[in-house]
Structure formats: C-alpha cells, structure tokens
Amino acid sequence: MSQHEPHLLLQPAPMLRQGMNTPRAMLDVWLALLPATLAGIWFFGLGALLVLLASMAGALATEWAFTPASRRRAAIGDNSALLTGLLLGLTLPPGLPLWMAFLGAAVAIGIGKVIWGGLGHNLFNPALVGRAFLLGTFPIAMTTWAPSGGPFWEIPPSLLALPFQSPAYDALSSATPLGLMKFEQQGTALPELLLGNTGGCIGETSGALLLLGGLFLLLRRDFDWRIPAGIFLAAATFSALLSLTGDGYPGPLFTLLSGGMLLGALFMATDPVTSPLTPRGAWIFGLGTGFLVVLIRVFGGFPEGMMYAILLMNAATPLIDRYTQPRVFGRGGGRDRGEQTS
C-alpha cells in the first residue's frame, strides 16, 4: 500500500519532443555568423564593432519599447531581436554613422517585425526592411565604404556624426568588388573575395568564413538547404550564360563570391519566417532570388541586388506557399479532387 500517488498531470501526447527549440535555433545562427563577424571586425577595426553594437542596441531597444509588457520577456528572450540587429549590422558599411545604424535597427524591428505582431508573423525579413530603409534614406552614407585593413583602433570620423547630422568623410574611401565591376569593369581576385580583405559591408566580405557558417547551419539542419542551393544555382547559371555572351559580364564564381550573395543566401533568404514552408516553394524562392540578384546587378541601377531580390521574393512567399502545397498522401491529382472525405 506504499504506492506513490502523484498528483497526475494531464499533458496531452505526444510526450516526446525533438531536441531543438526556437531560441536555440536562433543561437545556432549566431554561432554560424560569429566567424564572419569577427573577420569583419578584424578587417574594418573597432568602428565595425561599434556599428554592430549600435545596430543591436537599436533592435533590442525597439523590441523592448514596442512589445506589450506581457510578452516582453519572451520576445527579448528568444534571441530574435538581437539576431536581427546583428544581421542588419553585418549588412552596413563599416563607416556608417552610429545613429543611422541605430535608426535602421529601430525601423527593422518596428516596421519589419513588431507591427506585424512580433516574431513569426512578419512577412518581410526585418533586417532587410531596415537596410532597404537605410539605403533609400541615406543613399550616400550607405554606399560610402571605409577601407579595410587600417589600424584596428582607428575609428572613421563619419562613424561619430551626431544624430540627424551628415557624416564627414575622410578622403580615404574604397570601392566594393561589385562597384568596381559595375562602374569600372574591374574584377577582384578570387583569393581576396574568399578572404574578405575588400571593401564592402561589415559581414559580407569574407566568403570562406560565411561558407563555413552556412555549413554549420546545414549540418545542424537549421535551414532549408534548397533555398541557398536554388539561389546559387540560378545565379551561377544566369551569370554563366551572360558571361558566355562575351560582353564583359562577370562569371559565375565572381557572382557567387562577391557582395552580399553568401551572407544573403545563407543567412537572410533562409530566414524561415519569411521564406516558403513547402519544399517546392523553397526551390522556387531560391531560384527566383538568384535570378533577381543577377538581373538587378547586371541590368539594374544598383551594383548589388541581394537585398532587393530577397525582399521581392519575401513579398511573393505567400503566393508561392499557396501554390506549392505538397500533394497530400493518398490524393493523386492534388487539390482538385477535393472533398471526398467526411
């Protein structure tokens, strides 16, 4: 009669859970971004670190300010705001005034996320909404690139511009490989693209380390591999075809390794919230993004198109999801066979 009689819970089945959870998935992305982030700071110096911090601070502050108190703890705790801040920061030029980075992150979280109802409800990648806003708002500051490889402790003067004031630039500014290609038909050597000692956004220059991070996420099954695969495939094919015409268009390798291609394809387009759920949808999303990137880079007005390509495909994601629902088991012809169950 000494049986233990617990107060029984009525937690419904399934009792078992796969080990992964959402905050951890976010943390994984953090880890995967770490090498490229550190490389960015290494190349661009202390200033880059400050820009990243300003962006993350803006994201956290906005998330905190606009999330209802009841959900605040969870919203901050799921690491997603901080990740948005980091991702935005990585797509900013190293000499961007800190107030702009802060503002961009505020817009990213405010208009990109909170307004939609918070994590999981936004349909556009928040970091990219913030960046698109910044590029549209401060086109010059967002395309002026502090050179890499200077003394670590030296902070570009533009960084410290007072809020709402124009930054002052020192004469030294560099060009990105994409800018060189677009406006001066000048290539950049592959080793430099892989290593990352080029002009560009803080987190986008180091191809090899970004690939390493992507590999980590792939092994952890944290993203849908079809999306980057689709992007690489479409971009490489399109640019290969273009370069075959012999009109001096960049080849596939340059296309894949330059600009925000790797950062975008591996870490932004794969944001599960804003990309299609279905496997076929993921392919379409990836291929569409890859195509648009090259279209904008080669035929458009901007040297880089990754951000716009992803945002445009984000916009199409509800449609893609809708028309790529997998065929339900036991339903041969897809949906049209419809309502025979009861």
Partner: peptide, 11 residues
C-alpha cells in the same frame, strides 16, 4: 535644421 542636417531621402 541648418546645413549639417542629413536629409531622409526616402521620405
């Protein structure tokens, strides 16, 4: 705002 003001072009 004086000459130092950085306009928000997107507006």
């Amino acid at each position: 705002f004086g000459p130092g003001f950085e306009p928000w072009v997107i507006m």
